[in-house]
Nucleic acid binder design. Structure first.
Lengths: 164, 164
DNA sequence: CAGAAAAACTTGTATCTACAACTATTGCTT
DNA sequence: AAGCAATAGTTGTAGATACAAGTTTTTCTG
């Protein structure tokens, strides 16, 4: 069997590489679309003298949390970055006055990242710009209904990707 | 009482921050799902002693190109990374023997990244592992038909995101 | 047909991220 | 209650990426 495969491969080199699959193609489309939109957003933010995209993601995530504060570990998980990386990212936001650290009374190990007024103000400024950019990127080819459908599909995929 | 006061204060503070939008939610889902799957793939590759994900993406993209080679600029655009970044990425792959640089006869400015036999072999080894991981992540919640639909949706979004 | 402008790629630098080791605190087990 | 394991977060270091400036080759223009 592998003899035959090798012989075939010798004649037709590309046959050695397994073919693409529907799920693989969907992934390729997902990753390239993601990268393209990230690029657009970063260009826009940089042109408007806003902080980089990861800062926005932190602010937007913390703002959704109760009391506008979040445990470091939970925040890292939500953003899908490492805890070490988050520590330094939050350090920068704290230094910029956009977040403050809040220490837990009942468990001295945990610390929270909490929105400051300046952080809330900046988010309020950035959000419309980000959303406008996304509208341009999405709306041309995606109705609101389609956007919701897309979100549901992706959420379910993420559900299984995280659990396993 | 104080609960109500707190709730009101919270609501008033958050009112400064513009609300979320359907497209914004779709984007959030897209970016987090992307990150989650990347994380899974990288874990798998590292556990199997394979090179990191960007190497796979380079190999897979070059392998699809005619003659299994691609101009640096086109490759950078396809991967949605900067040309400077690609130069160094390809440097590493060349040093590992997976790619070779081919210089254009008619235009001495351009250079191609071309697959070596070792690069083709490695891709042939990695692809099944990557696809298997994606099948696990996707298949649980996505039929082949749904995967194709997802790909089409994302492709059309990318089309408008890139052109503008 | 010079000489400027553009194009393709590379390089230098500074920042950011991940990975692994480390500290401090809490929970569990006997 | 003592000691070991688990949890939460930080830090040190190495590697990777973006951004901007630099080099070489090609194209355009007067």
């Amino acid at each position: 069997m592998s003899e035959q495969a090798t012989a075939t491969a010798t004649r037709e080199r590309k046959a050695k590489v397994p073919p693409r699959s529907p799920h693989g193609d969907a992934w390729e489309s997902l990753t390239r679309t993601h990268a393209a939109i990230v690029q657009r957003l970063q260009e826009m933010l940089s042109a408007a003298d806003f902080p980089p995209l990861p800062w926005y993601e932190v602010l937007a995530t913390v703002a959704e949390a109760p009391e506008e504060q979040m445990r470091m570990g939970d925040l890292a998980e939500a953003l899908v970055i490492t805890r070490g990386g988050l520590t330094k990212l939050v350090d920068r936001l704290v230094k910029a006055g956009l977040l403050k650290r809040v220490f837990c009374e009942t468990d001295r190990r945990v610390s929270y990242a909490a929105l400051t007024p300046a952080g809330r103000d900046l988010l309020a400024e950035m959000r419309p710009a980000v959303i406008a950019e996304l509208e341009v990127a999405f709306s041309a080819n995606l109705s609101v209904a389609q956007a919701n459908e897309l979100r549901q599909t992706l959420d379910s995929v993420r559900g299984s990707a995280c659990s396993a």
